[in-house]
């Protein structure tokens, strides 16, 4: 069975280096012969076994003995792992193509394919939307900074409990710094349904906004995200203290659920826009999903500014 694993490995290596191509051919021949119930004539299996056993031998003769005696079992395990790995990769690829998230719709898992600049990203999913089509939000409601009549408007849907929204924070800060006076930025607090305290955190942030302390409160809340996930009420209170929010007004706002309707409105707006995860950015009518590098923002903003 080791030839099957070798075939997969050498095929990949053969793409990058010609020296592995004869080995890939040899492995293919070996696999073909085994499939037709004939012995592998090239001795590739024996060479691989000896190489592996010898490598282990130099470190632990006892382990080498165990490997040598159970090599067929070891080969089967490797083969099973390889097949499982292929199946999982294929499933992930399917998810990525269909849902734009290699972990499937509604997953919190991270998709490495998108982290460095792909069009879509696996992130804090909405749990409902499976569409990849994003529609520009109907309103500019939200927390706004920057020029009111800017040529470029950047809208962010973000969730305080989403680690990818937090990951995007320094990038957003850099965007705001680099394009100060040239863009308008709108933050829309978006409660991820699968995040238990998300809605509460968004309400708290909007309560802080009523005291013009939104941006400070937002920074505090992201900085204590682990506490927010573990003990939401404690985090919400501490963030308020750190952001110099008037405590009694804040408490009153929270107890009266005064901002709950706003949060629900942001949620509905996000769903209407087809959000499938946070953070989602609209740069005018163009989108970025996930904690994209600054260069991704820069490219889109520059293009929009030139229009």
């Amino acid at each position: 069975m080791i030839c099957l694993v070798a075939l997969a490995v050498f095929l990949v290596l053969a793409v990058f280096s010609a020296r592995y191509r004869p080995l890939a051919r040899e492995a293919f021949d070996c696999v073909f012969r085994k499939m037709t119930l004939r012995p592998c004539e090239s001795g590739l299996d024996e060479r691989l076994k000896s190489t592996l056993v010898a490598s282990v031998f130099s470190k632990s003769p006892r382990a080498a003995g165990a490997l040598n005696r159970n090599f067929e079992l070891f080969s089967w395990i490797l083969t099973a792992l390889m097949i499982a790995s292929f199946a999982y990769s294929a499933f992930s690829a399917y998810n990525w193509v269909v849902y734009g998230d290699c972990n499937g719709p509604g997953s919190d898992g991270f998709c490495p394919f998108n982290a460095i600049g792909g069009e879509h990203i696996s992130d804090c999913g909405t749990g409902n939307s499976t569409s990849r089509t994003l529609v520009l939000p109907a309103t500019l409601n939200g927390q706004v900074v920057g020029l009111a009549d800017a040529k470029v408007t950047v809208i962010e849907f973000g969730c305080f409990e989403c680690k990818y929204t937090k990951e995007a924070e320094p990038i957003v800060a850099r965007v705001l710094e680099e394009y100060a006076g040239r863009i308008r930025f709108v933050f829309k607090p978006f409660p991820i349904p699968t995040h238990n305290n998300s809605r509460l955190a968004e309400q708290a942030a909007l309560c802080a906004a009523r005291q013009d302390r939104f941006w400070a409160y937002k920074d505090e809340l992201f900085s204590m995200q682990p506490l927010l996930l573990a003990n939401a009420s404690d985090a919400i209170e501490r963030a308020g203290v750190n952001a110099a929010v008037n405590s009694s007004e804040f408490q009153e706002c929270m107890q009266s659920n005064a901002t709950a309707t706003e949060v629900e409105a942001f949620y509905r707006e996000g769903m209407a826009s087809g959000l499938y995860g946070t953070p989602t950015f609209f740069i005018n009518n163009r989108t970025l999903v996930g904690p994209k590098p600054f260069e991704a923002f820069e490219a889109l903003i520059e293009e929009e500014l030139k229009k």
Partner: peptide, 13 residues
Amino acid sequence: AKPHEIAMLLDKT
């Protein structure tokens, strides 16, 4: 043990 294995192990070890 297969002869080729012995030969390779003698070489490698």
